[in-house]
């Protein structure tokens, strides 16, 4: 079995405790392990408050785990600092759950979207403007709006600014935390297609956190289900969707809303 590739990313027994008072602590994540290979997408679904975003933030090294480790390309990154942390950060992009609050309100979209280019000190002939415009266009934003400020965009447009920012460099891993939830289904389909196309072309991996299970089924190769800080079940996409083992997964799947069946006209078209 020496033929098995080293996963791009491996989370080993990650836990996170938050201090919530002078004496109280709260365990937000407990014993979470998974791996993601190149050109693979891991979907994370589960209860609101179960630790999905906290896990994402530990993987991106925005917060330190209380215990456990993260390996990127076979190397431990939990202890990295300085330029080796910078190398890691260049390969990993995050699309955050709250679109507006993750965009600096005083920066124009051009400044926001080109930030990863500046961080990596990339040079581009004619500056970053053309790259920003191309990135905006790919996510269905009007490139002429690149001089506007985040507040001048709608919720779904702001979300797409975050996606454009993540994709402008060539990341190896993109962590999408509810990255398409503010989009109408038609723009959402377009963005999902873009993500899959980029995966095919550039071998990108994704960690895709979402409450919309139908969307997760369309993008993820495998799925982890979280509840109360733990992964209660993980496995290949179709196993999780067609033959869920854990009670919570079953409950979740049975609660997925569908268009009132009496009226379902979209079905046949």
């Amino acid at each position: 079995m020496s033929d098995i590739a080293t996963p791009l990313l491996a989370a080993n027994d990650l836990s996170k405790e938050f201090r919530t008072g002078r004496r109280e602590k709260f365990t937000a994540v407990e014993g979470v392990s998974f791996d993601v290979h190149r050109r693979q997408t891991l979907g994370i679904v589960g209860e609101s408050g179960s630790g999905k975003s906290t896990t994402a933030r530990m993987i991106a090294r925005l917060i330190d785990p209380t215990s456990g480790s993260v390996e990127f390309q076979g190397e431990e990154i939990t202890q990295r600092s300085g330029s080796s942390l910078r190398d890691f950060r260049s390969g990993v992009q995050v699309v955050f759950q709250d679109p507006y609050s993750s965009l600096n309100p005083r920066h124009t979209v051009e400044e926001v979207v080109s930030a990863p280019l500046r961080y990596q000190k990339r040079t581009a002939t004619g500056g970053y403007r053309n790259m920003v415009k191309a990135a905006m266009e790919r996510v269905g934003l009007n490139p002429d709006h690149s001089t506007r400020y985040p507040r001048q965009f709608s919720g779904g447009q702001a979300q797409r600014i975050g996606i454009a920012r993540a994709l402008i460099v060539e990341p190896k891993l993109v962590i999408c935390d509810e990255a398409v939830s503010a989009l109408d289904v038609s723009v959402q389909a377009q963005v999902l297609e873009l993500l899959v196309d980029l995966q095919r072309e550039r071998d990108i991996s994704y960690i895709f956190i979402a409450h919309d299970l139908a969307v997760v089924r369309q993008i993820a190769h495998k799925v982890a289900v979280m509840q109360k800080g733990r992964i209660v079940e993980q496995g290949p996409r179709d196993e999780i969707f067609d033959a869920p083992q854990h009670e919570y997964t079953k409950t979740l799947l049975s609660a997925v809303p569908s268009i009132d069946p009496r009226w379902d006209a979209g079905r046949c078209s």
């Binding site: 098995i4 179709d238 078209s269």
Partner: peptide, 22 residues
């Protein structure tokens, strides 16, 4: 009509690129 048709459904399964496992 386009919106209704684009609504993702739980039983829609699409083809994805093959992950690099070896």
């Amino acid at each position: 009509k386009a919106l209704l048709a684009a609504t993702p459904r739980l039983d829609d399964v699409v083809d994805l690129p093959e992950p690099i496992l070896t």
